[in-house]
Computed example of a mutant assay.
Amino acid sequence: MSRHGRVLVAMSGGVDSSVAAVLLREQGYEVVGITMKTWDYTGSGGRTGKEVGCCTLESMNDARAVALKHDFTHFIVDIREEFGDWVIERFTEEYLAGRTPNPCVLCNTHIKWAALLRRADALGCDYIATGHYARLRRDEATGRYVLMKGLDPNKDQSYALWGVAQAHLARTIFPLGTYEKPEIRRMAADFGLLRVADKPDSYEICFVPDNDYRRFLRDRVPGLGERVAGGPFVLQDGTVVGRHEGYPFYTIGQRHGLNLALGYPVYVTHIDPATNTITVGPREELLQQRLTARGLNLIKYDRLHEERPAVGKIRYKDEGAPCLVRQTGDDELEVHFAEARRAITPGQALVLYEGEDVLGGGWIHTVGEAATVRDT
């Protein structure tokens, strides 16, 4: 019997999840490793010549080798059907709706945690664990589990975890949250994990290995390119200034690839899927202060009963900015930033912070006109 219980560790075959598994074993947990096959090249295309990511045979073998070396059980499970239904379909639907999706958050919220917990229950595991750089604590006053930023600001992954439900956080362990990435690589070497210690981090969308989502959409939706090509590029006043390749192939804030010669730089400022119209304009037309978010998951509190200050992040690499947040309904937040933000994008996640704690988040639904600056 282990000192701390039995834990199911999601292992991608990379350095982070490998070290997470061995760390937990060193701490006295009974570790069971699991690698989830979420997709394959046959279905997604975009072969790059070298298979990289968490679903390749090489990665699965690397995860299994770690388990064998450190004497714990390892399973491989096929969740391609679950992953496709939730993540890939929604990824496609969001672009077709004129929004820019974040598949990693969808995966964490609807697939990774739910799928892990189902397998954990089947295997008699008390907890699940991942190699994410985030921390977790229980607030004794409220009884809620509070997600916190990872200690390493360069690797903090709390933004991608805002959608994980309280019941799932209650059974989650983040072994790497208090470490910095260079320490993890040194630990990997110390643990004898030489096959993964120097593995590069993967940043592409896992099911789009060539990082070309436009190619992926064309492959996924037969005839899409022909159906949407030729729509108008317009200025804010409606003046037509050119023709585009189709609204799903553009994102808010995009400058390159527009092929417009207007004598000054222009950016995509609005996408209208109903009319296949893309509005472009100068950089200042990307600046907005107000948004609404839906599809909420509140973490630190069960509800935001009054307007409160926070720091809001509007994309993964965003440093965050001061704002006031007000819950306007059971599933809607209104956010006013103290200063205008660039390229707030429907479909991306808004994540709200109170110091190191994640208040919660939601999907950016609408972006308002530039609002009056409010005191934060």
Results as ranks from 00 to 15, higher is better:
residue 2 S to M: 03
residue 3 R to F: 05
residue 7 V to Y: 12
residue 9 V to A: 13
residue 11 M to Y: 11
residue 19 V to L: 11
residue 20 A to F: 01
residue 27 Q to W: 14
residue 28 G to N: 12
residue 33 G to P: 04
residue 47 R to E: 12
residue 48 T to F: 03
residue 58 E to Y: 09
residue 72 F to S: 06
residue 73 T to L: 15
residue 78 D to S: 03
residue 81 E to T: 13
residue 82 E to S: 15
residue 95 Y to Q: 00
residue 98 G to M: 04
residue 115 A to L: 09
residue 117 L to H: 13
residue 124 G to Y: 04
residue 125 C to Q: 06
residue 132 H to E: 12
residue 136 L to D: 05
residue 139 D to S: 04
residue 140 E to L: 11
residue 145 Y to C: 07
residue 150 G to E: 06
residue 151 L to T: 09
residue 158 S to M: 08
residue 161 L to G: 07
residue 173 I to C: 06
residue 175 P to L: 08
residue 175 P to F: 11
residue 184 I to W: 02
residue 185 R to H: 07
residue 187 M to Q: 10
residue 198 D to Y: 11
residue 203 Y to Q: 14
residue 206 C to N: 14
residue 207 F to I: 06
residue 209 P to G: 04
residue 210 D to L: 02
residue 214 R to N: 10
residue 232 P to M: 00
residue 246 G to V: 05
residue 246 G to P: 03
residue 250 Y to M: 12
residue 250 Y to C: 09
residue 270 H to N: 13
residue 271 I to W: 11
residue 278 I to G: 02
residue 285 E to R: 12
residue 287 L to W: 09
residue 292 T to E: 08
residue 296 L to A: 04
residue 297 N to R: 10
residue 307 E to Q: 13
residue 317 K to T: 13
residue 325 V to D: 00
residue 325 V to T: 00
residue 333 L to C: 07
residue 343 A to K: 05
residue 360 G to Q: 03
residue 360 G to M: 07
residue 368 G to L: 02
residue 369 E to R: 12
residue 376 T to Q: 09
